[in-house]
Design a binder for these strands. Structure first.
Length: 257
DNA sequence: GAACCTAGTGTTGCACTTTT
DNA sequence: AAAAGTGCAACACTAGGTTC
């Protein structure tokens, strides 16, 4: 017997018939149950190999009323940081038996809404979201109401109760600014980021606080709000360098800037 | 053509039966 | 009595059939 080509997929019913057992026994073998006799298990595994059976996750989800898919909704996958983050999360999921389903919203709340709807339809087991700029807390009400666990990554939404995993932006920016001062810089700049992001305010405040505490006068601190990507960084650089006493070092809002 | 009904899809979990 | 295996309902949805 060989695997069928170009026909509908092999099911456990066919495996059961080939191995001379019931489909329940095949199911037990697939789950690695030790209540199946080793000889029977070998027969079932041989039938699986011969017929080219592939586990049907969709059918299993139908019975279990849940899936092993976890949605990852990223606000900007062109940002290398988020690509790196996605790889890290994917690695953790893999070892836990989950499959990530990644979507990029490109900072568009409308696109984010479509993606959330699609994820709900897929019956995802959970969601990790880096919210698009301009997202409102009620955008996630439907997901919460469906009882799907959600966690925000990197960005928080004011007034949202959804838990978040994020770095200590204030402290991070403070330490980065201190590093520059310790290297002898006295004219500092903060490049990129926009005021509608909570993260921006946290990082900027950390930066400003360090400057104050470490004796960098306000007149020597340049803050340039701008886009959170490469062009935004270039624009800030041009603006800062055009002045009479340009900064000698800058803290950038993110990797892309 | 609309509205409704039925059968079928693949897998799991539990109660039950058979075998040793 | 314990181990091994079986039968069947359930899940959400769709395609196809039937009736009006």
């Amino acid at each position: 017997m060989t695997a069928r080509a170009g026909k509908e997929r092999v099911t456990i019913i066919e495996i059961a018939a080939a191995a001379g057992v019931s489909k329940s026994t095949v199911s037990l073998v697939l789950k690695g149950s030790d209540s199946v006799h080793p000889e029977t298990r070998d027969r079932v595994n041989a039938a699986i190999r011969e017929l080219g059976y592939v586990y049907n996750r969709g059918a299993a989800n139908l019975r279990q009323a849940r899936s092993n898919i976890v949605g990852m909704i990223i606000n900007d996958l062109t940002n290398p940081f988020f690509a790196e983050l996605a790889v890290g999360i994917e690695r953790s999921f893999q070892s836990a038996g989950y499959v990530p389903f990644i979507a990029n919203t490109a900072e568009n709340p409308v696109r984010q809404e479509e993606v959330l709807k699609s994820m709900l339809e897929q019956g995802v087991a959970g969601l990790i979201v880096s919210p698009a700029r301009g997202s409102r807390p009620d955008a996630f009400r439907r997901v919460e109401a469906a009882g799907i666990p959600v966690v925000f990554a990197m960005r928080r939404l004011p007034e949202s109760r959804i838990p978040i995993v994020a770095p200590d932006n204030h402290r991070g920016a403070w330490l980065a600014a201190r590093h520059l001062v310790e290297r002898g810089h006295r004219r500092l700049a903060f490049f990129g980021g926009s005021a509608d992001l909570v993260v921006y305010h946290e990082r900027l405040e950390g930066f400003r606080e360090a400057c104050r505490q470490l004796g960098v006068p306000d007149r020597d601190v340049t803050v340039c709000e701008g886009e959170t990507h490469r062009k935004g960084g270039m624009a800030c650089l041009d603006t800062a360098m055009a002045g009479g006493a340009p900064p000698t070092a800058a803290l950038c809002f993110n990797d892309a800037v």
